[in-house]
Nucleic acid binder design. Structure first.
Lengths: 373, 373
DNA sequence: CGCGCGTGCTAATATAGATTAGCAGTGTGC
DNA sequence: GCACACTGCTAATCTATATTAGCACGCGCG
C-alpha cells in the first residue's frame, strides 16, 4: 500500500504482453486517452461534457475523434443474459422499433397489442422510432439493444418487403417483423391478409346483390394496393362475375383522388351499383362526389372502405369497412417469443392475419333499377 | 502524499457523519447486500443472473426483495450530462415515459414534438408506457434509466397535478414533466394554457357579436374542465357580460353528454346564440342536437370546440376549435434540456403554452333575431 | 522582475460493479 | 473416520469510470 507504482498495476503488466494491437475486448477510456495523447481523466471530462471543466477545443476534438475512430461505447452493466426475464420481479424488456409513430394510428395500435401481451408476463415494452433513416436507425436500435433487451419487434408503417438492415441478423436475440418481411424469410413475420380483406369486402357487396362493383385503388406500387385489388378480382372470379377494367380506377389513398375517381366511375355508361374504396380516406372523397351527384348512400349506391379509421364511424352514413388487424399483429408478435426459442435457421413462413369486415350502414341490397345506365 | 488515510478522504469523513441512514444518493449493491445480509458479490451474482454460480433460492429471493425495496437501479455511466450530444456520433438517449399511448392521440403528438427537437441534436428518443400502474411504472422507468438515458420526460395523458413517484427525485438526470406538474415545483413542467384557451375561444364568439354564450363542460373534477370554464368566465367578465349559471351545463367530454346538454340549452327561455363545447367530442353531440332541432350552423347558432381532434375538420360544417399544443410541449421539453443544467434547487415555475384557435366554419356573426327567444 | 492568477491539463484517488479463488459446512462412499 | 466432492457463500481483487487536488506554464502588472 505504500510503495506504489510497481506493485499495483498488474494490468499494465498484462497489457505489456500485447504490445500495440487492439486492447483485447472493449474500448475503454484509457485506450482513447492513449490514442489522443492525453489522460483518461481528460477523456472522461470530454465524453461527459463535465461542467466546470475547462479544456481546449483542440483536445476535445482529438478525444472525440479518437473515441469515434476506436468505436467507443460506454460500459454495459447487467445486460440480462438469457432472453427470458433475468429474474422474477426485475423486468424483462422487449424492444419495439418502428419507422414512424405519428403519421398513422396503426403503429400505436400494434404497440398496444404488444403491450397487452407483454404485460401479463411482466415485460416492459420500449419503443424507438427509426424514421426509416439509415443513419438514425442503427442508433435507435442500438439504444435498445445496448442495455440488453430480450427481443426486438421491428415494424414498418407500410406493409412491404424490406431489406433488413444487416445488424438485425447479428443480434443474438429473437427478432420479429411486424407488417413487413424479408425475402429470405429469416425472421418470423406477420402482415395483414390484405388479399383476403379485399376479397371479403367485395364478397360482402356481391352478397348484397351487387354485380357492377367499382373499385378505387391506392398507389399502385404499394403492396397493400396490389393485394386489395387482387382480393377484389378473386371475389369477382369466385362469383363468376367477369372483371371489367373500366370499373377499376387508380387512386392514391387520398380523399381528393377518391372524389375524382368516383366522378369517373359515375360517368361510365354502365354505372356501378357499389364502390369498394380501398381505404377510408378514399371513401371520404367518394361520399362527397356521390352526394354531389345527388345519390343517396346506401339506397342508390353502396360503399365500403378499408382500414376502419376513426373517421369511418362518423361519416354519414357510417362506413362499412375492413379492420386492419394491427392489435392482433402486436399480440401475435409477442406470442411468438413464448413458443419456440429458435427453430433451425431462417425459413419462417409469413403469417397473415385476417382483416375482419365491420358492417355499418353504407351497404344495402342492390335495387332493381332496370338494366344498366 | 505519504500519510494518507486521514488526510484525503473528506468523503469518508462526511459519510461517517451519517452512521446508518440512507446512504446518500444512489442505492448500491453494497446497500442491498447489507439489507439482505450477504455480500456485495452475492448481490452482483443474483442481479446479473451470472451463469455458473450456485446460490440458494432463499438468498436470491432475499436479494431481489431487498433490491426492489430499496429501489435499486444500475449505475449510469457517461449518460451525457447536459442532454446535448456528448459528442458527435455517439448517441444520446432521452427517455420518454407516458402513462398511455393508445387512448388518445395527444401522447403521440407530444412524442413527435420531442422527437423532432431531439433529432437535430442527434438524440434518440426511447418511449415507455407506465399505464399509471404503481407496480409497472418503476419498472418501465427503470428500463429506461438502466440504459443510461440522459434525461427523462415524464408525461401524463390528462393535464393534472401529480404526486411524482419517489424515485423521480433520486434520478441523477434532468426530469421534465409534460402535461403535469408537482405541488413542490421540483421539476420543470409544461402544460397547455387551458384558461387562456377557454378565454380566447369565448372571446372569439364575443367578437362575433354573441352575448348569450352557452358552454358545455367536461368532467368537473378534471383540471382541464375547470380551467376552460375559468377562461370562459374571464372572457365574459372582460367583455362585461354577466355570468349566467343557466348557460353552463355539465358534460363529461362525451358526445352523448354533448347532445343532452345542448337539448337542455335549447330548452332555455333565453336561448344562447353560440355554444362553447369544451371538447370536440362534446361538439359532435352538440351538432347532432342542433341539427335535429332544425338549426343551421353557423347561421342560426355558432359552435366552437376544443382539442382539434382529427374529426373536427370533417364535421359539417368544419368545427372552429382550439389546438392542444402538445407538439410544442414536446419540443419545449427537449429545449429545456439544453439551456440550464440545474438552477438552484427545485422551484421551477410551471410553463403554460398557448392553445391557438383554428378558425373553420362553425362560427358566424350573431344574427339579430329580435330580442330573446 | 517576480507575484498573482487564469488556463489546461494530469496524477492520484474514490467508487461501483464484476470476478476469482477459496473457505466452511455437509454429506458420502468405503 | 477419512479422502473427497459438492454446495453456498465471502474476501479480496480487478476493471472502468468519476472526481479532486494541484502542477506547470504563460501573461499582465506594479
Amino acid at each position: 500500500m505504500s510503495e506504489p507504482t510497481e506493485l499495483r498495476d498488474p494490468s499494465a503488466a498484462s497489457r505489456r504482453r500485447k504490445p500495440s494491437a487492439k486492447p483485447k475486448g472493449r474500448v475503454t477510456m484509457t485506450d482513447i486517452a492513449r490514442a489522443a495523447g492525453c489522460s483518461q481523466a481528460t477523456v472522461s471530462f470530454v465524453l461527459n461534457n463535465s461542467p466546470g471543466i475547462r479544456l481546449s477545443q483542440q483536445t476535445r476534438d482529438r478525444v472525440i475523434e479518437a473515441a469515434r475512430a476506436l468505436g467507443y461505447s460506454p460500459p454495459v452493466f447487467s445486460a440480462l443474459r438469457p432472453p427470458v426475464t433475468p429474474f422474477e420481479g426485475l423486468d424483462g424488456v422487449i424492444g419495439f422499433a418502428v419507422d414512424q409513430l405519428a403519421t398513422s394510428p396503426e403503429a400505436v395500435v400494434a404497440i398496444e397489442g404488444a403491450r397487452q401481451a407483454s404485460w401479463n408476463a411482466g415485460n416492459v415494452l420500449l419503443v424507438a422510432q427509426t424514421m426509416g433513416d439509415a443513419l438514425m436507425e442503427p442508433r435507435a436500435i442500438a439504444a435498445l439493444t445496448r442495455r440488453g433487451i430480450s427481443a426486438l419487434i421491428y415494424m414498418t408503417i407500410f406493409t412491404r418487403e424490406i431489406a433488413a438492415p444487416e445488424f438485425l441478423y447479428s443480434l443474438d436475440i429473437p427478432v420479429i417483423l411486424l407488417n413487413c418481411y424479408t425475402a429470405d424469410y429469416a425472421f418470423p413475420a406477420v402482415v395483414p391478409s390484405e388479399i383476403a380483406g379485399g376479397q371479403s369486402a367485395t364478397r360482402h357487396l356481391i352478397a348484397h346483390g351487387h354485380r357492377r362493383i367499382g373499385t378505387i385503388t391506392g398507389e399502385p406500387w404499394m403492396q397493400a394496393a396490389q393485394d386489395r385489388l387482387k382480393g377484389y378480382r378473386r371475389a369477382l372470379a369466385t362469383a363468376d362475375i367477369p372483371f371489367d377494367p373500366e370499373l377499376v380506377v387508380e387512386g392514391d389513398w387520398s380523399a381528393s383522388a377518391g372524389y375524382a375517381a368516383t366522378v369517373k366511375l359515375l360517368a361510365l355508361k354502365d354505372k356501378p351499383t357499389a364502390i369498394f374504396c380501398q381505404n377510408d380516406r378514399t371513401a371520404i372523397g367518394c361520399y362527397e362526389a356521390l352526394k354531389e351527384a345527388g345519390l343517396h348512400i346506401p339506397e342508390d349506391i353502396s360503399v365500403v372502405g378499408y382500414d376502419d379509421e376513426e373517421i369511418a364511424r362518423h361519416l354519414f352514413p357510417p362506413l362499412t369497412t375492413s379492420i386492419l388487424p394491427h392489435l392482433a399483429m402486436g399480440q401475435w408478435a409477442i406470442e411468438q417469443l413464448e413458443t419456440p426459442p429458435v427453430p433451425g435457421r431462417g425459413r419462417y413462413p409469413i403469417t397473415k392475419l385476417e382483416c375482419p369486415l365491420v358492417e355499418r350502414e353504407s351497404v344495402a341490397r342492390v335495387r332493381d333499377r332496370g338494366a344498366a345506365g
